[in-house]
Amino acid sequence: MIIKFKVLACLLLLSTTAWSNTGVAFVHGTGNQTNAASDYWQWDNINSIRQGLPNQNNYVVINCEFEEYMWSSRAAGCLAGQLTQFINSKNITDMVVITHSNGGNVMRWIMSNPTYDSRYPNIISKTRWVNALAASSKGTPLANAVMQGNVFESALGWLLGYQSDAVRMQQTSWMDYYNNNYLLGTGGRPALPKGFWNVVGSDVETSIFDGDSYCGGYSLNLGLEITQAWLSSCSDGFLECSSQAGAGTTWFYDTARMNGGEPLSHNQSRRKCFGLDTILRDDI
């Protein structure tokens, strides 16, 4: 049903593509990026996805400081600046935004708070939809684990830079507040002004005998043996499925569409793995 709906929306868009100028933007997750194309998304992935563009030069890879709170001038402000520059310089009229992890929250801030910054309404206007890969829409218990409990630890750790404002913000009780009061698209709230389509990673494969676990993923990373204890059985190793599907509309779960029914771990959903790049390319 969801797939059909998105295909229908695509067909409707086809009628306008004759005079639209389509572009794609890649929005990274938590972290301060200066070269996200190489360090975060990887060029083979970007080059594969942008093949879906009529003009393959119409793409931008965002580099911002997503260690900050989503509303910060260095997070959403930076994102708005780079998207506006992209729209203006390339004369983009139809933009597909691909986000990963916390990048979905920063994009959702822009779409939910259009009056906060005069650049936001034009970005919303030009956005066709957002493809949100492994979005941390409802936060993660792993952020709770590193921030909560002993306040002395977290306050000091915070000062020492062990944690960032973005991690603090992605605690589950914090995201619940922001979802209910500042963000749109979660249950019981108005929908976002444009589609927010979730790709949900549901499992992690780490076996050294399984070559698939090497695709940008974990080569027998024992860290997962620890961190998955905080997460439900449906998770990508960092986020529970309920968080990834927590805002907007679920486009698909990994095993339903990936080659060989492979799951997408949190790192794999931003890489060229199991045909995800082809699906994203065909969606532009």
């Binding site: 792993l142 684990a145 590193v146 991690v167 990373n221 024992l222 860290g223 997962l224 043996e225 961190t227």
Partner: peptide, 24 residues
Amino acid sequence: QTFVNGQQLKATGMSVSEETVALK
């Protein structure tokens, strides 16, 4: 049963210091 260092935890996305260790 399991012992991991800070780098292995950070690789999963868990924001801990480099000197953190964890065990199960």
